[in-house]
């Protein structure tokens, strides 16, 4: 277990570093914040002072070194905009995103399991055709378009729902629907494919030979085996939700990490942007570990042990069978 964690941390350290460096450098390409934070008629002297005060006059590698020095001391810098600690701002925005993404994923998984299993019971039956149409449509609608249409129809024209904000339950409807459709559509296809293949496995017949009811066969035997490939894909989709959240949070004014990122990019608030990206990367890292642990919990054959089974160089390898299966199930029409 510890070996597994250590392996995961080591193998994730480098990508994480690359992400941070990339964001660091790209952010600075957007230009000097001085032009945003100083009055239009600011003198050259004022600009130089601002630049120097914020360490922006140093060569970029010096800025990086200072930044990393700070990170090691858990000092992530201050917001140019508010002077507040960047880390505090990111952490404050985080729960809103987590709630939105968590609720969305939960709904997507539950609905997809029900619809996907129902479709798999009779491949090419009526239920299968209907669910296939719905899930294809759901998976291919762009989320920003859906968000705008949603606001237009339900908030502006009909006036049923608020256009933005975080008030009551009704404020959740449009953001969740917008974020939900794609993961739901993709997951229905995955669950359906995995269920069709697990329902044709010999262990299903074995369960029936013991007198297991249809319900028991589907839930205990087929779904339990379909869970592993579904989990892997759900994990990828959950990571993708973070991207979706940036768009959806901005459109609906949801005060989460995505909105914070966009705002800090627009304001060249580098420290806040970096803190937000770092926090997101860390949560994706943790999410991936949880997925692997869940995966191992579902299937004894890939349970991580001290000694690597098969050719698992990194923890990632434990998820490999699922990836293969995923490809396999996706090709099922």
């Amino acid at each position: 277990m510890l070996t597994f964690l250590r392996r995961r941390i080591l193998s994730s350290a480098l990508p994480l570093l690359v992400v941070i460096l990339g964001v660091f450098a790209l952010a600075r390409l957007t230009g000097n914040p001085a032009s945003l934070y100083l009055p239009l008629n600011a003198t050259e002297q004022m600009r130089a002072d601002f630049t120097e005060k914020n360490g922006l006059d140093n060569p970029i590698w010096v800025q990086m070194a200072e930044y990393f020095g700070g990170v090691l001391r858990l000092d992530f810098g201050e917001s140019l905009r508010t002077g507040e600690s960047a880390a505090a701002m990111a952490l404050r925005a985080f729960p809103a995103t987590l709630q939105l993404a968590g609720t969305t994923m939960l709904l997507a998984v539950v609905l997809a399991v029900i619809v996907g299993s129902w479709a798999a019971l009779k491949p090419n039956g009526i239920a299968d055709r209907i669910s296939s149409f719905i899930s294809m449509a759901a998976a291919s609608v762009p989320d920003f378009w859906l968000a705008i249409m949603g606001i237009w129809v339900f908030a502006i024209t009909l006036g049923w729902l608020p256009t933005s904000g975080v008030g009551g339950l009704d404020a959740w409807v449009l953001p969740i629907l917008t974020l939900l459709l794609r993961p739901f559509g993709v997951l229905v296809q995955i669950v359906r494919g995995a269920m069709v293949s697990s329902l044709s496995e010999p262990y299903i017949k074995l369960a029936r030979s013991k007198g297991a009811s249809e319900f028991r066969v589907v839930t205990r035997h087929a779904l339990r085996n379909a869970a592993a490939p579904a989990l892997t894909v759900a994990g990828d989709l959950a990571v993708g939700l973070v991207n979706g959240a940036v768009v959806v949070e901005s459109i609906f004014g949801w005060p989460g990490i995505g909105k914070l990122m966009i705002d800090s990019i627009l304001q060249r608030d580098f420290a806040v942007l970096q803190a937000a990206v770092l926090l997101t990367a860390i949560s994706i890292f943790i999410l991936n570990i949880l997925i692997d642990l869940g995966y191992a919990g579902l299937d004894a054959r890939v349970r991580p042990t001290g000694k690597p089974r098969k050719a698992s160089k990194t923890g990632k390898a434990t998820a490999a069978p699922a990836k293969e299966r995923k490809l396999h199930v996706q090709t099922t029409p």
């Binding site: 010999p202 262990y203 074995l206 369960a207 085996n225 592993a228 579902l298 299937d299 004894a300």
Partner: peptide
């Protein structure tokens, strides 16, 4: 096909 018939996850 008995030898592959046991459910791998239980």
């Amino acid at each position: 096909d008995a030898l592959t018939a046991l459910n791998p996850v239980y």
